[in-house]
């Protein structure tokens, strides 16, 4: 039961992260929302691993952690660059790459 509810919780967190990602215009908040989504995914893995009594869920959590660390370090670097170039963190302002 617990694992099922944990999965629902994971989905809730993921959905909240998605809402945040779409609603906030500040890049920093968008990154935070992505962290929330990643956490939701981690929770799903942990819950599944615990349900099947397998270590694989936690292994996946470790990989997600690594991914998050790498992603955040590069993304924050980009945020700094963007801020110094555009003087704003408004994601809608960086639309130079439109097709």
């Amino acid at each position: 039961m617990l694992a099922t509810h944990a999965l629902v919780l994971a989905m809730l967190l993921f959905g909240l992260g998605l809402i945040g990602l779409l609603v906030r215009r500040n890049v920093l908040y968008m990154l935070l929302s992505i962290e929330v989504m990643l956490n939701g995914a981690s929770l799903a893995f942990i819950a599944a691993g615990s349900r099947w009594a397998q270590p694989d869920g936690q292994v996946m959590f470790l990989f997600i952690l690594t991914l998050a660390a790498a992603e955040v370090s590069v993304a924050l670097g980009i945020v700094l660059q963007v801020y110094y170039r555009f003087r704003t963190l408004d994601a809608d302002a960086f639309s130079l790459m439109k097709g």
Binding site: L21, R25, M30, A91, D92, F94, M97, K98, G99
Partner: peptide, 18 residues
């Protein structure tokens, strides 16, 4: 029409992924 979807808006991309 396809290239119109490439509007450079980050949140639009995220929404389409969603």
């Amino acid at each position: 029409s396809l290239s119109r979807t490439q509007n450079g808006n980050l949140r639009w991309y995220a929404a389409t992924v969603g």
